[in-house]
Amino acid sequence: MGLVVRNHLGLVMATSAQRMVASDSPQAAEAITVLRGIELAIDTGLVSAVIESDALGVVNQIKSRGPNASDIGIVVDDIVSRFSVLAGRSVDHVSRKANFVAHTLSRMALTIAEDRYWMEDYPPCVEKFIHEDYLD
């Protein structure tokens, strides 16, 4: 999975490429990625967050905030619980082309032996996309 945490000005606060045990469900993988993104945002000390994902089904389930009996319900419940500690929070669906940094980091995660984290930085492989994603 690939994660990008930005502050309210769009500046990169953290990025991460993390290995994930293969999942039969792309929705489950996306939901776990959103959860890890919230955890990384909290760990970086952000008090406000906007979650962006290109997985519309996951975004809709998070926004519903009701009881969730789906196959990813327990992960969505964790997302809502952890997200509630952040002020100024919202969850938005973005197009895949506006999420290229995260996808590049995800591909990087396939090649690493250990999870990687960059605080207030990012790896060179995403440098050219950092500003493009924010502007889209």
Rank of each mutant, 00 (worst) to 15 (best):
I51L: 08
K63F: 04
T44F: 00
R19G: 11
C125L: 06
I72C: 03
V94T: 07
A113I: 11
V101E: 01
A17P: 13
V126C: 12
S81P: 02
E39H: 12
Q18E: 13
E132Y: 08
S81H: 11
D133R: 01
G45S: 08
G10F: 03
V91D: 01
R89E: 09
V94Q: 04
D43Y: 02
R107I: 03
E52G: 08
A17N: 04
N60G: 05
S16Y: 01
S64N: 10
L9D: 14
A41V: 03
G45P: 04
I32R: 07
A28H: 14
G2Q: 00
D71F: 07
P67F: 08
M1R: 06
V76E: 06
I62W: 03
V80R: 15
M13V: 13
D136S: 10
P67V: 06
I62R: 04
M1E: 05
D92N: 12
A113T: 12
E30Y: 07
L105E: 01
E120M: 07
Y117N: 04
A17E: 02
V91K: 01
K97A: 08
R82F: 05
A55T: 11
I62F: 07
D24N: 10
D115V: 13
S16A: 11
M1I: 09
N68M: 09
L105H: 03
S53G: 10
L110P: 01
P123I: 15
E52I: 05
V76K: 05
D77R: 06
V91G: 03
A22N: 10
S95T: 13
F129D: 05
V76A: 09
D24F: 14
V80I: 15
I38W: 00
Y117V: 14
I32C: 05
V21P: 11
M108R: 14
I79D: 00
V12R: 00
I42K: 12
G57N: 08
L40R: 04
T104M: 09
S84P: 14
V50M: 11
Q61F: 03
D92I: 09
R36P: 04
L135M: 08
H8I: 12
D54N: 12
M1A: 10
S23E: 12
T15H: 03
M119D: 02
R116P: 02
A113F: 11
G88L: 09
G57D: 05
L110E: 09
I32Y: 04
D71P: 05
D77C: 07
P123N: 15
V59G: 02
R96W: 09
A102K: 01
N68K: 06
A31D: 08
P67E: 15
